[in-house]
């Protein structure tokens, strides 16, 4: 299969207005990925699926990741005067990196039996702009998996045919897979009609009658 750089070059040449970035993966697995921009993602996905040399017809795995706001350390060489002599010193600055939600697609080709090509998309932030284009129209296998990501991460997939909660119940409001999710204290408590009945019954119940000393009765001899 082509290298990711070659795929990127061909996307840039074939898909108008596509912006693709290669995200390296430092680990031993050596699975780098392509970061797609949201506007052009569907066109690029069409290209990846239909291109004659790629034919990525099988979208195996779709998953979300929650990246919290984090401090990004950057090191710069700065000339400073130390003890009267000019020296090069490392200056470390900490910037706040904004958090975002990310979706990762693992693509393979069943026809040509190669892969994976990993593509990812990112939202702008974690709260206000959490929309991403749905790729269910291109790979049907994303249908239930994108629904699951919507349910557990709260990413809205535009143009998804049936975006509803899937694992949690419909009335649930939070997104449990987010890193800052906190379980409610009264998790087990659900008001039921039964509670009302019990309260009403309690109001009408009189005190338990005493036994009038009946327990002291002894068996006749």
């Amino acid at each position: 299969m082509e290298s990711l750089e070659e795929i990127k070059a061909r996307i840039d040449a074939s898909v108008a207005g596509a912006r693709v970035e290669i995200i390296s993966n430092p680990g031993p697995a050596n699975q780098p990925s392509l970061l797609l921009d949201r506007a052009g993602a569907e066109a690029i996905a069409h290209f990846l699926r239909d291109d004659a040399t790629l034919r990525l017809d099988f979208c195996s795995n779709v998953t979300g990741i929650d990246w919290l706001d984090r401090k990004v350390k950057t090191t710069r060489k700065v000339r400073q005067i130390v003890d009267g002599a000019e020296k090069e010193v490392d200056e470390i600055t900490e910037d706040a990196g904004p958090g975002y939600l990310e979706v990762v697609y693992h693509l393979y080709s069943m026809q040509l039996k190669h892969g994976p090509v990993i593509v990812r998309m990112r939202t702008r932030d974690r709260t206000n702009d959490v929309h991403l284009p749905s790729l269910t129209g291109i790979w049907r296998s994303a249908e239930l998996q994108e629904r699951e990501i919507y349910d557990l991460y709260g990413i809205h997939f535009d143009r998804h045919p049936d975006l509803r909660r899937i694992l949690m119940w419909d009335e649930f409001t939070d997104y449990p897979m987010r890193k800052d999710y906190r379980e409610p204290d009264d998790y087990e408590y659900e008001p039921t009609a039964h509670d009302e009945v019990l309260t009403r019954a309690k109001e009408r119940v009189s005190a338990r009658p005493s036994l009038d000393g009946a327990e002291d009765l002894a068996m006749p001899e």
């Binding site: 993966n25 680990g27 031993p28 699975q31 195996s60 795995n61 693992h106």
Partner: peptide, 22 residues
Amino acid sequence: PPVGEAYGRIEGPKGELGFYLV
């Protein structure tokens, strides 16, 4: 394990069983 991500999969009896780890 070192920083990175990996997707591994096998042919389970029911189909492709994969684990994606970051």
